[in-house]
């Protein structure tokens, strides 16, 4: 079935990135340049995922207004993360602010 084929494909590329690298690094020499470039992959990928979700809350329309709770709470989250450097505080306060903001302004 199609969806199980998708799961199989996603499983192969996910496990196929995680496991072999863990197995081979240290046993095979990794070029220094590759290792350095790799350090930028996580923040780049994560930023590429979250910035559009903040700016295009419905996936298609750019929304820069204060009605956009994802954008407002996202900016608050950045400030929280920057000031506290504490992941738990950022998640709890950021999520709390987001829900409160939506409740107060009646956004759905």
């Amino acid at each position: 079935m199609n969806e199980w084929l998708l799961i199989l494909g996603m499983m192969l590329v996910t496990f196929g990135v995680r496991y072999p690298v863990m197995l081979l690094v240290g046993k095979l020499p990794m070029p220094d340049r590759v290792v350095r470039a790799l350090r930028y992959v996580p923040p780049a990928v994560l930023a590429a995922i979250i910035v559009p979700s903040m700016l295009y809350p419905d996936g298609q329309t750019l929304d820069l207004s204060l009605q956009n709770s994802y954008l407002v709470a996202g900016v608050v989250g950045v400030i929280l993360a920057w000031r506290t450097r504490n992941l738990l505080l950022t998640i709890v306060l950021g999520m709390g602010f987001f829900l409160l903001y939506r409740a107060v302004f009646g956004l759905t």
Partner: peptide, 16 residues
């Protein structure tokens, strides 16, 4: 709006 949980978790991981 629960998908905001992903956004704020990733923000908390990237910024530091």
């Amino acid at each position: 709006g629960l998908d905001f949980a992903m956004v704020v978790t990733f923000i908390g991981m990237i910024i530091p």
